[in-house]
Design a protein around this nucleic acid. Structure first.
Lengths: 374, 374
DNA sequence: AGACGGTACTAATGCGTTTTAGTAGGTGTC
DNA sequence: GACACCTACTAAAACGCATTAGTACCGTCT
C-alpha cells in the first residue's frame, strides 16, 4: 500500500460527467439530463436507473457548464464596503451571512462574499460580476440615503435585494403636513429593488417607552454613520418619539459617528461634558455601547445609577460587560434568511416587494434603571 | 423620457462577448482571444485595437465559459465550521478574509465563503465544490489535531493551504527524549498541504517573559477548543515555558473552553475560586478576556492590582474595556494575504511549503502589572 | 525556382451541460 | 390501413471561451 498522500498527488481523480453516466446507463446524454433535472421525456424506469448510476458515480453538475448553457451561475454575491480597520467586532455580518447561507445552500447556491474599501469599488465589483456572469443576484447591505446602487443594479438587470432599506419614510409616521410638498416624486421614488427591512421607528418607540417609563427626560442617541439609511431613519424616529412626549431638541437629540469604538467613546465624553448631562444614552451598535460604558466607568459614573445605557443590537459583547447592557435584540440570522428568500423570489420572477423583518425586542438588563433623583 | 427603473427592467442589456469584439475589430474570435490573453499570434497593432474595442464595450470574460474551457474556475473557497450561535464577536475572521481578498481580487479571483455547522458538513462541501468544479482551491482554517481535511483534499487533488497549522511539533521545542518513540511516522506524518502559521511557541514565550518579569508565578491559561491544533500548541508551549522557569503544573496550567464569552466567564470564576488563586490569566481570545475582566470587576478584584489579564488577539474589544487589556497583537489581514499568496503559489504548481507568518507582539496596556504583594 | 521558415491570421474543435429538433415505435381512430 | 398522436428516446446545436490545426502571405536560403 502506498502512502495515501502520494497516491492522491499522482492520480487526481477525474470527475464524472454526464457522458459517463450515459455510457454506464446505456442511454443518451440528453436522456440523462432529462432524468436528472426532472424533465419529461424519460420513463420512470430509465429515470430511476440514471439516478442510481449518477449516485454511484458521485456525479455533481459542473457549475461552469451549467452556467454557460444559458442558465444560472448558481451563486449570489454580497459586498461589504468597509474600510479594513473598521472591520471587526460587530457580530452583525457573520450572523447575517450565516442566515443567508442557510437558505441558499439548501438550493446549492454559493455565496460570493467580498469585502471592499468603499462604495465605488463596490459598484465596480457589481459591474464586473455582472459582466462575468459570476452571480445571479446580489444582496445589498448598508443602504444609504443617496444610494447609487439600486439604480446601477436595476440598469444592469442584476436581481438584487436591499437589506436594511428602504430610505423611504415609514408609513407609521405621517410627516407633518406642509403647505407645498417640495417634490413628492423625488421624495418617494418608486423602489427599484426589493427590500427587506426592520421597523426602526417602532423599535425606537420601544426604547423610548422603556427609558421614558423609567423617568428619563434627557436622552442622547449616539447614531452610526450619517449617510446610512437606517441611521437617518432612527434619528428621525427619535425626534418623532420625543415630540410625542413633548421633549425638545435640547433634551433629546442624536449625534453621528462612524460606528467605531473610538468615536463611540469620544462622543460619550463630549456628551457627558454637557451641562446638564443626559441621564440615558442610546448607542446604535454594541461596540459603541460598550465603549461608552467604559468611559462611564473611567469617570466613576455609576451605571445605571447615574446613567442608563441601551445598545441597539445585542451580542456577546453586551453580556460580558459589567453591568450587562440592556439591548435591542433582533434575529439577525432570521433577517438574513428572509433576505435570501426574497432574493430567490426575485430570481424566480416574483414582483418587487418590500417585506418587513421581525420587530426587535428590548432585552432589559442591568444597564438601565430609574432616572437619578434631582 | 421613461422612468429609469422601468427602462432597466425592460431592456436587460446584453453582455458583450468575444464575438462582438471580433466583429467590431474586424478580426476572428481567435485573434481576439490571443490579443486579450497576451498570447502570440497577433501583431502589436491588432492587439492594441482589440484591447481598445474590448475596453469600449466593457467586456469581461464570462467566468463560466472560461472555467469550462479547461481552465480555472477563478474562485477560491473558505469554509468556516462553527455552530451558528458561536459566530460573532471575534474580529479574526473578517480581518483574515479581508486580507485574503486583497490578494485574490487583484487577480480577479472570487472568494466563496461559507459558514457551516460542523466538520462533516465542511468536508461534504469540499467534495461538492470539487465535483462542481466551483473552486480552484480552498483555504482551510481552524486546523485540528486529528484533522480529516488534509487527507480528503489531497485525495481529491483540490489545492489547499492550511491557515494556522500545522499540528506538528515546533522544531524550536525539542521533545523530551523518550526510550522508544512510539511511531515517528505517525507522529510526524509528511504534510499533505501547504501551511501558513504563526509561531505560537515564541508568542507564548513573550507572554511568559512579560508576566514572569512582572513577578507572576501563578498563571492560568484559559485556552480555546481542545481539538484545535493551535490550542494544543499553545498549551504545550505554556508547559515548556513554565518548565524553563521551574514552575510546575500546580502553578501554571491551562484549561480549555469553547471560546465563548460564557465559558470564558465560567472558567474565570472557577479559577478565581482556587486557593491560592492565580495572579495572572492568559485568555486565548479577546472575547473571553473581556468576559474574564468583567468577572473580576463583578467580584471587586482590582485589575491589574490583584489580577493581571492578557488577551491573545487584539481588537477594539480590548481597548473599550476599563482598564484596557494587554494583548498579543498580530497582523491578521497580513496573515490572510500570506495564505492567499501561498494558495496561488500552490495553484501555479509550486512545491508544498510551510511558511511562517509574522511573530505577534505583546501590546502592554493597563491590564497587566506587578504581582500583588503577599 | 523550389523548399523552408516565420508571421499573422482564420477555421474548427472541445469543455459539460441544457435545449431544441428530430425519429422510431406503438396505439388509437375512422 | 393511412392518418394523426403519443411516448421514449437520440442527435445536434448552443452557450463563450481557449486552443489546436490549418492557411495565406512574405522573405530567405540554396
Amino acid at each position: 500500500m502506498t502512502a495515501p498522500g502520494e497516491a492522491a498527488r499522482r492520480k487526481p481523480a477525474r470527475r464524472p460527467t454526464i457522458k459517463d453516466i450515459a455510457r454506464r446507463a446505456g442511454v443518451s446524454e440528453s436522456a440523462v439530463s432529462f432524468a436528472l433535472n426532472d424533465r419529461p421525456g424519460v420513463s420512470q424506469d430509465t429515470r430511476a436507473r440514471v439516478r442510481r448510476v449518477a449516485e454511484e458515480l458521485g456525479w455533481q453538475a459542473n457549475s461552469a457548464a451549467r452556467a454557460l448553457s444559458g442558465e444560472r451561475a448558481g451563486a449570489m454575491g454580497l459586498v461589504l464596503a468597509r474600510p479594513a480597520q473598521t472591520l471587526g467586532v460587530e457580530s452583525f455580518f457573520l450572523q447575517l451571512v450565516s442566515g443567508i447561507q442557510e437558505v441558499l445552500s439548501a438550493r446549492k447556491i454559493a455565496l460570493l462574499f467580498q469585502v471592499v474599501e468603499d462604495l465605488d469599488t463596490e459598484c465596480a465589483l457589481y459591474r464586473r460580476w455582472w459582466a462575468e456572469r459570476r452571480v445571479d443576484g446580489v444582496l445589498v447591505v448598508d443602504p444609504r440615503t443617496e444610494d447609487p446602487r439600486p439604480e446601477l443594479l436595476a440598469s444592469l438587470g442584476l436581481p438584487a435585494v436591499v437589506v436594511g432599506g428602504p430610505a423611504i419614510p415609514e408609513p407609521a409616521i405621517p410627516e407633518p403636513a406642509v403647505s407645498a410638498p417640495p417634490d413628492p416624486a423625488a421624495a418617494h421614488p418608486p423602489p427599484l429593488l426589493s427590500t427587506v427591512w426592520a421597523d426602526d421607528a417602532k423599535a425606537m418607540a420601544r426604547v423610548l417607552d422603556h427609558l421614558h417609563g423609567l423617568g428619563h427626560r434627557r436622552i442622547v442617541h449616539v447614531a452610526g454613520m450619517p449617510g446610512l439609511a437606517h441611521t437617518e431613519r432612527r434619528i428621525r424616529s427619535l425626534r418623532t418619539e420625543a415630540d410625542l412626549r413633548g421633549l425638545d431638541e435640547r433634551h433629546v437629540h442624536s449625534v453621528t459617528t462612524d460606528y467605531s469604538d473610538a468615536e463611540g467613546a469620544e462622543a460619550t465624553r463630549r456628551i457627558l461634558d454637557a451641562a446638564p448631562p443626559p441621564t440615558a444614552i442610546i448607542y446604535d451598535n454594541d461596540v459603541m455601547a460598550v465603549a461608552g460604558a467604559s468611559v462611564a466607568a473611567e469617570r466613576g459614573i455609576p451605571v445605571p445609577g447615574a446613567l442608563s445605557i441601551v445598545a441597539w443590537d445585542d451580542s456577546a459583547l453586551c453580556r460580558v460587560t459589567h453591568p450587562r447592557l440592556t439591548a435591542l435584540v433582533r434575529d439577525t440570522p432570521g433577517f438574513g434568511r428572509l433576505a435570501a428568500q426574497e432574493l430567490l423570489a426575485v430570481l424566480d420572477g416574483g414582483p418587487l416587494r418590500t417585506v418587513q423583518g421581525e420587530l426587535p425586542h428590548l432585552e432589559a438588563r442591568e444597564s438601565t434603571g430609574a432616572r437619578p433623583p434631582r
